[in-house]
Design a protein around this nucleic acid. Structure first.
Lengths: 319, 319
DNA sequence: CTGTTAGCGCTTTCAC
DNA sequence: GTGAAAGCGCTAACAG
């Protein structure tokens, strides 16, 4: 496999000149350029990108950390990131964590090793201190509320949005409201729980832990949720669901069991994924693809940046 | 940022020795090793991975080409790939094509540039000749029927599986059968169409192009399909759907419009994604995650390999 | 316009 | 056990 030196020799010029034509620098005479091009053609030359990475100290690779790529939620965010990355001639290195902190740490380490130019964390596990620490090695941006830290972030204020959703349901006459969450820990979950407790306190309603459903992530989780609902002696009349996928699953199971929605159970969800539209699910729109775009743009920009993304209620037929 | 030379100087040893302790080579005296370790600690040393890539001529990066990562189908395949990659200490570079050939070509080019060690193409666009050509630069494996070429592949025989599905439906008494496809072109689609035509010919049934639904990809596509079905004067009584997502969408819309399934419309689908189980969709199981694993394993193995994956009918309630 | 040259940071013979 | 030195392939001053 020919290298730049071979080309130089073959074309009868210096390596600099070859480098110039490779990188489309001006100031190369047409004849020499021709000669170089011909030599490259002859030898089927390709430049070794790793040598370029070494000398430039960057790779045009952006790390993207997600818990699981098969979840449509993250699929949409990554879609946006990928879309923008393409324009900027960047590639994405996908790191799935399955919520294991060690994998997130590995991603952070890649930044330190300069294997990636920047890192986008779509759902964080490790402590803010750790993320802050690694931020010294390159741009890190998190799709999570990082206010109070010096980590860049684009985020939803889940306290606020949960409050809004609760108020909406309350306004529709619901007294007993439950909610479904993807995971117990995590910044977002804590914000949501805080909102829930504060709301209950304000409304003078008692807190009933059996109204909270954890590990509600996929469409198919709708099944056990509905199952559990039916066994409750005093089930909630409305459910706040943090993902359209789960809401869709719940709705499907309710339909199957002839549980009226919204008559017996009202559902408010989040994301406004395509499935929510088809199934007429009332949901809070979160512009995931656009958020993905912004995440990428800020990742390569590298400046400190924190921005809240507002959510918007889309009323449909499940409330 | 300290480099290996700095460490050597600081520890009072040669760079070779430093390199040895970095790479855990034997034959380094404990004292020197100690000294090196201390120097690394002091300076917060990290080795530049790009220099390693340059000298080794490999990057431990595997390219993965998918049309769109947000589709659960590809999410599952990538899940399997990622899982296995993790074990082998490889990283994935995600390339979304949106079915644009140029992007697939870019991925192939990355292999040529040695930016990735191998390439996995989950859904191919470009001609086999092109893929074969780039195969010279590194292992390429395709999740598509590559028999007759010298490209490695793990695949479903879509002709055979479609035939089987058609026979199954026919055995249940269906005379007029339609089908839904993701895209018109592509190896799989051609195989399926061939099966469909052959089946019709054998059964002596006429070919009705209005029974074929193209661009059926997502859950939400179920809507227009059902819509179109209702406007047909002589609609098919059974539908072969090439993705559980679409089948689920169709089922949801049928339920909404009180179209009995399977009484008015039978549905046989493919993949056996979790959603199919919940919605009791009769489907052909395709072990996507396992296929992902195999794809990865063969990609790093690098030997020529072609293997057909059998599909298995899972009878549920939509037929 | 063009070429010489000094690296980028690391690995790996090879000789001691 | 250890180190000197020769690269890996490329870029970018710098000098002409």
């Amino acid at each position: 496999m020919a290298n730049i030196k071979d080309i130089a020799k073959l074309a009868g010029v210096s390596v600099t000149t070859v480098s110039r034509v490779i990188n489309r620098h001006p100031y190369v005479s047409d004849e020499k350029k021709e000669a170089v091009l011909r030599a490259m053609e002859q030898t089927n030359y390709v430049r070794n990108i790793n040598a370029v990475h070494l000398i430039k100290g960057k790779t045009n690779l952006i790390g993207v950390v997600v818990p699981s790529i098969k979840r449509p939620y993250f699929g949409l965010v990554v879609e946006g990131i990928a879309d923008e990355a393409l324009k900027g001639n960047y590639r994405l290195v996908l790191i799935q964590t399955n919520y294991e902190e060690s994998r997130e740490l590995e991603a952070l380490m890649m930044l330190k090793l300069k294997q990636i130019d920047a890192l986008i964390i779509c759902s964080k596990i490790s402590d803010w201190e750790i993320v802050e620490e690694y931020g010294a090695y390159g741009p890190v941006i998190v799709f999570e509320d990082a206010r109070g830290t010096n980590v860049s972030s684009i985020f939803i204020d889940h306290y606020k949005s949960f409050m809004e959703a609760l108020a909406y349901l309350s306004g529709k006459g619901h007294r007993k409201i439950g909610y479904c969450l993807a995971r117990k820990s995590g910044t977002s979950s804590k914000q949501r729980e805080a909102a829930y407790r504060d709301f209950l306190k304000n409304a003078g309603e008692p807190f009933d832990p059996s109204c909270i459903f954890y590990d509600a992530v996929h469409f198919e989780d709708g099944e056990w949720i509905v199952q559990r609902l039916t066994t409750m002696q005093n089930p909630p009349t409305a459910l706040l669901v943090t993902s359209d996928q789960v809401a869709a699953g719940i709705l499907a199971c309710c339909n199957e069991r002839k549980i009226g929605v919204p008559s017996k159970l009202a559902i408010v969800s989040f994301d406004n994924q395509p499935i929510a539209k088809i199934l007429n699910i009332t949901t809070f729109e979160i512009p995931l693809v656009d958020i993905g775009r912004s995440l990428f743009l800020q990742a390569i920009n590298g400046n400190f940046y924190q921005k809240e993304i507002p959510v918007k209620l889309i009323e449909r037929l499940t409330v």
